[in-house]
Design a protein around this nucleic acid. Structure first.
Lengths: 200, 200, 200, 200
DNA sequence: GATGAATGAGTATTCATTCAT
DNA sequence: TATGAATGAATACTCATTCAT
């Protein structure tokens, strides 16, 4: 019953980081269930034993990898909201925001989306993690609009729908291979929906 | 390497059906990865060996179970499309359609949604199965609208977005617990989007 | 969570027996803690997996092996008590009884005494098993004497002491290497103690 | 392969002592096989590495802990022998001796008897250690009697039997929970045996 | 077709011991 | 001396799949 250590030394922190990265990589390539802890350790360049100094068990690696992964994805999205001037240029701001979302998803290619989303559906803890992050974004969007004086009846419902549309758009754009032309078409449809939500 | 038989005798067909149903049940209760084939056989009331007469391997049970599951979910949805008179009462038809979708998802409670969706993300074959069924529905919607003389630019993009909105609506309504009031609010927002798509 | 089966078919019963015998053998040769389940299976000539059809876990093999072992040791001892005529020839009967105990311990050489006794000290379940068997013998001795009209004050205390003396005698005779001469000397001392207990 | 040091500095000696005490404590609480060296080090308040400066391996801790433990148990017993005047008051002396044995066993509660005895049966080295100490006591008893002019034929055999009786008495008194009344009964039976050995 | 006993490769996790600092 | 992070061999137990009956 070894207790889990929080690494303090620089080298230890790096080691833990390497394990997380290795996890991200292999889980995304082969899937969580097809990956052994020995494999992760090997790719991280550490011994199998040390993994259990920093992680409670295999799933703990997944959760911490997801944490990092979500951080990378959602941070630029949240940042983008602060720089959008929805009041002056609503359509342009939304367009810019969607494109940043798209980019954030593309950057995060280390961990295949399907695997992430799949594990978040299958595993309660992983799902809860994602849920919390998504709620943060939804709330941030509502606040950003409100700060810009933009409002509408049933705004929460509206934003949730909008968020899901954008998320599906990003996932589709990554999963399937679409022409830039088609991507733009979809983007324009989304903008139309957004405009109608607040200015119809 | 026993060859997989297609059962012909009535009792054999029933036996295969029982295995599929047992699979649906246990996968949904405990998840694919936490279920053993022996367990499925036991619940189906057959021997473990016989499973491999009808199914190539464990995943084959999953795929055939998904097949059945999708059949149950999508058939009423496809049927609904034929009975909608989008021309006379567009809004009413969409509303009716969404409600039928909602009902179809609720009926299919045998197999937990999260588990289905999760496996469809993690496993390519399962994913392909779902994709094909969803495309059928999307195409059917387009055709139904077109048969009713309703059209718009970029109709495929529009319908895909609409389909995703409705799907997310159904899943959210099942996963989370919302008041009937809120459900109605969201439903109205969806109808608004749909109307704007074709009549703005 | 496979359930433990009680083998019914002749071949299965033999298989379970072979595993127990293999356990007896290897535990006694190498000790419980230095033995792997794979080793037991190999010596039993079965696969590692089948072990867990018949035994809950590794310790379950030990306990069932001990059960068999105790059966072999204590049955002849209990039988002997029925054939002793303590009334007519007390000394001769006790002598005969002790020699049968000695023989029973020697026969049971399959499972080293030290290992048995050690595990019975370290493990509560194993200890309880031994305790129960030993109490059976102690009670049987008391009954045999009583049936022969032989009694004394504090008979339970007396018999427990006597039993321990005989047990230690058997163990010493097996553990250490003594001359037959010395063995006889000790035996005579024991007889003297026994006689004094009831006829002084 | 660090060489084992004999600590010279006071602090080092104390450190080694702390490890031994920690070993005694945890082995007795959880058993040798359920204890990790890291645990011992932690309880001793030292680093895991330092343990291997003073001890060859885990078993070496056990052996030195046993050494200490036996010292504590047998020293008062050996001392008692010097103060017994078997010549003047044989029965009283024996009684006193047995009571001191009982007390010595009770004092040594740091290290559970079952664990000690079990390990001495399972492990040859531990067993040899115990054996040597017990032989010392047996020889000391013989000498004490002889110094008091008390002798008998086959005295070695007699004393060994007596020693085992007393040992079993002490262990039983600790393992099982008996009334003081019963304890006294057994003690009297033992005294009777002892008297008969030398004065019948 | 049907059974369920048997197989054995596969894996997460532990822990005595070492070693860089 | 002292630390405690790192090592990696070792192992109980599982389970998809096969096969003798």
């Amino acid at each position: 019953m070894t207790e889990i250590r929080q690494p303090i030394k620089r080298t230890s922190i790096e080691k833990k980081q390497k394990i997380i990265n290795a996890g991200l990589q292999v889980f995304s390539e082969k899937g969580y269930y097809n990956t052994t802890t020995a494999e992760i350790a090997q790719i991280a360049g550490v011994s199998t034993g040390i993994v259990y100094n920093y992680f409670k068990d295999k799933k703990d690696i997944l959760l911490q990898a997801l944490q990092v992964c979500f951080e990378n994805t959602f941070k630029p999205i949240l940042n983008a909201l602060n720089q959008c001037d929805f009041r002056c240029d609503f359509e342009g701001s939304i367009r810019k925001f969607v494109l940043i979302c798209l980019q954030a998803h593309n950057t995060e290619n280390k961990f295949a989306h399907r695997e992430i989303m799949g594990m978040c559906m299958l595993d309660q803890d992983a799902g809860a993690l994602l849920n919390q992050k998504e709620n943060n974004v939804i709330n941030a969007i509502i606040k950003a609009l409100s700060d810009n004086g933009i409002t509408a009846p049933n705004i929460t419902a509206k934003i949730k729908i909008l968020y899901h549309i954008i998320r599906d758009f990003c996932h589709t754009a990554i999963f399937e291979n679409h022409s830039e032309n088609y991507i733009n078409t979809v983007l324009n449809e989304i903008l139309e929906i957004a405009k109608n939500m607040f200015f119809s």
